[in-house]
Amino acid sequence: MAAFSPMLRQLGCVRSSLRTRELVQPQIARRALSTVYSARPQPTPLPEKLPEAFLSQLPQRLRPDQEPKKLKIYPPPPSTRAVCRDPIATLTTSQLSVLDPTSERKKLFDYRRNPRSVKVGDILRVTFKNGDPFSGVCLSIRLRGIDTSFLLRNELTRTAVEMSVKLFSPNVKSVEIVERTATRKRRARLYYMRQRKHDVRSVEGTVWHYLRQKTSVTGQVSGGRKKKN
């Protein structure tokens, strides 16, 4: 058994060396193929004035009557910006001219410009076209153009009531200053007056005195039900 073993090994070597040659051969051949340069074939141009009979042999895309469709380009819609630069400001002025033609109310509450205007801390009385008048201390004035509103606070039957009224609401008949604040308030919004310590409680007495004085001067009873508490 030991005598055969080298023979076997040799045979095995021959076979393996043969196998490698087989492998190498095609690789060389392939490399040769890739190195051969040939120019890219140019497309043959279509002959000029091709007779119509031959058109059917051409592929679809090359036929002269099968040109790509022209896309229709629509003009952009007219710009609303060009029509009205600032629509909100335009709306505000147009609405104010309807709701407040004399701009009397606007001046009455424009505390930034008008020194005689309503200030926070004043006692105001608002009468409505429907419903009872409401009076109270003005806690804040919110200047927002047509949305301008003010916040009134009062105490009715020992319950604090707050009402925010839109100044230019067509429902508001009149706004009167019952009493101006004694000292200028240092804040724009007097929300601290909701605290028990700073609360002025009911202003109905002040309003009642004001209404009595008013009737004695003008000699007519102002509209709305008088409230006493």
Binding site: S149, T159, A160, V161, E162, M163, S164, V165, K166, S169
Partner: peptide, 14 residues
């Protein structure tokens, strides 16, 4: 606070 039809708000203490 409750909003009324004319935009005014009403709120109570309790």
């Amino acid at each position: 606070e409750m909003q009324r039809a004319d935009g005014s708000l009403v709120k109570f203490e309790d």
